[in-house]
Amino acid sequence: MRPTVSRVAFASGLLAPRAVGASLVTTRCTSSSAASPSIAAASATYDHASFVKEIAATDPPEHLHSLLNLLQARGEMLVSPGAKRGLIPLVVPLSESPAGNLTSLLRWPTAPSGMEMPVVEVRNHGLWLMAKNVNQYIHRMLVEADISGYGDDVWSAVGDAGENFYTKGDFKESQMADVDAYLLKKVGLFPDVIERKTSLHLEKGDHVSALITGEFYTRDHFPGFGRPFMFNSEVLRRVGRTTEAKDSARVALKSPWWTLGCRYEVWSLLL
């Protein structure tokens, strides 16, 4: 029989409530804190779906089980959802990669209606947004597995659910120039893909396209994250628009430090 766990215990570890809608999060998290012993002990007997539902107090993603199987097929080791000591309290750990990074779900305290739990990776300087939801993450992994040729293990892990996301060979049949173009058109928006396309424009000396793509990145596609504004600040700085670069960095620094994708102190010293 599972122990009774109060939702108050989980809520006590959350940051102060904040809006995560049309505007960026404006309250800054000053430090990550360890999960309370009561949460860690109670969650030891919970699977990930039960933890999300009963402790994180939200509906678990429909295809969470398929995602966990996929992560294992990619060589990651599943971890307890209560293994949160030293982590930002808002994450629900799923698995650990050989490099030591944690693939997790993010539980915003006051997510707007209809917003699903994003998939994030815990890194040295906070969180990196991997996908806006579980379905989008699975879809991308299936596409990349199909292209790289290691798709059999991934497809077996996902099972019949994979057919809901992607048909084998669709990328080849699309005749698109590269996988990034396919992902943006067929799967969804991903921070690393947008940043890579922007950087390629800069490398080619196409500053106009780089500025357009960088500005597009900041248009509230990833609510709550300061990373788009931080990256756009760097793009503006590289093309000589110093004043605009500082303005973009100031907007980014109003967000929680763990959404910047870099060290907070480095950028704050530049303003």
Results as ranks from 00 to 15, higher is better:
Met1Gly: 02
Arg2Gln: 03
Arg2Thr: 00
Pro3Met: 10
Thr4Phe: 08
Thr4Asp: 01
Val5Cys: 00
Arg7Pro: 01
Arg7Glu: 03
Val8Ala: 14
Val8Pro: 03
Val8Arg: 07
Ser12Pro: 06
Pro17Ala: 05
Val20Phe: 02
Gly21Val: 03
Leu24Ala: 09
Arg28Thr: 03
Thr30Asn: 12
Thr30Gly: 13
Ala35Ile: 15
Ser36Phe: 06
Pro37Leu: 06
Ser38Phe: 03
Ser43Gln: 08
Ala49Glu: 15
Ala49Tyr: 15
Ala49Asn: 01
Phe51Pro: 13
Val52Cys: 13
Ile55Ser: 11
Ala57Thr: 10
Pro60Gln: 13
Glu62Pro: 11
Glu62Asn: 11
His63Ile: 02
Leu67Gln: 01
Leu67Cys: 04
Asn69Ser: 11
Leu71Met: 11
Gln72Met: 10
Ala73Gln: 08
Ala73Arg: 03
Met77Lys: 06
Met77Val: 04
Met77Phe: 09
Leu78Gly: 00
Leu78His: 01
Gly86Met: 09
Leu87Gln: 12
Ile88Gly: 09
Ile88Ser: 11
Leu90Pro: 00
Leu90Cys: 12
Val91Pro: 10
Pro93Glu: 03
Ser95Cys: 11
Thr103Tyr: 08
Leu105Met: 04
Arg107Leu: 05
Thr110Gln: 13
Thr110Arg: 10
Glu116Phe: 10
Pro118Lys: 05
Pro118Tyr: 04
Val119Trp: 01
Val120Met: 07
Val120Pro: 01
His125Met: 06
His125Glu: 08
Asn133Pro: 07
Tyr137Thr: 08
Ile138Met: 04
Met141Ile: 09
Met141Arg: 12
Leu142Tyr: 15
Glu144Val: 11
Glu144Asp: 14
Gly149Gln: 07
Tyr150Arg: 14
Tyr150Val: 14
Gly151Arg: 03
Gly151Thr: 03
Gly151Asp: 09
Asp153Met: 13
Val158Thr: 11
Asp160Cys: 10
Gly162Lys: 01
Glu163Cys: 03
Asn164Leu: 14
Lys168Tyr: 09
Lys168Asn: 10
Lys172Trp: 15
Gln175Trp: 05
Met176Thr: 01
Asp178Pro: 02
Asp180Gln: 13
Lys185Gln: 09
Lys186Ile: 06
Val187Gln: 14
Pro191Ala: 02
Asp192Leu: 02
Asp192Asn: 04
Val193Glu: 13
Ile194Phe: 05
Leu200Met: 07
Leu200Gly: 03
His201Pro: 00
His201Ile: 06
Glu203Gln: 11
Glu203Pro: 00
Asp206Val: 12
Asp206Phe: 05
Asp206Ile: 11
Val208Glu: 14
Val208Cys: 09
Ala210Cys: 13
Leu211Ala: 08
Ile212Gln: 02
Ile212Trp: 06
Glu215Lys: 15
Phe216Asn: 14
Tyr217Trp: 03
Thr218Ala: 03
Arg219Ser: 05
His221Cys: 13
Phe222Ile: 12
Gly224Ser: 09
Phe225His: 07
Gly226Lys: 01
Arg227Lys: 14
Pro228Glu: 08
Ser233Tyr: 13
Leu236Glu: 02
Leu236Asn: 01
Arg238Tyr: 09
Arg241Trp: 15
Thr242Glu: 08
Asp247Pro: 01
Arg250Glu: 12
Val251Asp: 00
Leu253His: 10
Lys254Ala: 12
Lys254Asn: 14
Ser255Trp: 13
Trp257Leu: 05
Trp258Gln: 09
Gly261Tyr: 04
Leu271Glu: 04
